[in-house]
């Protein structure tokens, strides 16, 4: 158990908690979704620090899955929820 790494992880926790405020405020759905990206990067950093802090290498794999899921969440949101309804200025292109 390394207290230093656990403390570092605890320092990062407010970064996520304060970011939740953006979900409350919005104003658009995309603004809320950006917080998912915050969870992706900040959450991964916390998991990595905890992995060293608690001496548990399994947390590295969890961080990996977390990173993948954060990206998939955003893409699903864009493709399924947010994209369809709204004025389309251009054709839909995969880029």
């Amino acid at each position: 158990m390394s207290w230093m790494h656990t403390t570092f992880a605890l320092i990062l926790l407010p970064a996520i908690v304060v970011g939740l405020f953006r979900i409350l405020r919005g104003p658009t759905a995309a603004d809320r979704m950006v917080t998912a990206q915050l969870f992706g990067t900040c959450g991964v950093a916390i998991l990595l620090l905890l992995s060293t802090g608690m001496g548990n290498p399994v947390l590295l794999d969890i961080a990996l899955v977390f990173a993948l899921l954060a990206a998939l969440t955003t893409m699903t949101f864009i493709r399924r929820t947010w994209h369809g309804s709204g004025k389309k200025k251009h054709g839909y292109s995969i880029s």
């Binding site: 995309a30 992706g40 990996l64 990173a67 990206a71 893409m75 709204g86 251009h90």
Partner: peptide
């Protein structure tokens, strides 16, 4: 992985916002 994921999500969100005329 996080680099690729977040730059791709960033581009997707920005593009959708542009297409919604925000």
């Amino acid at each position: 992985l996080v680099l690729i994921a977040s730059s791709a999500s960033c581009h997707l969100i920005a593009r959708s916002a542009m297409q919604k005329n925000i």
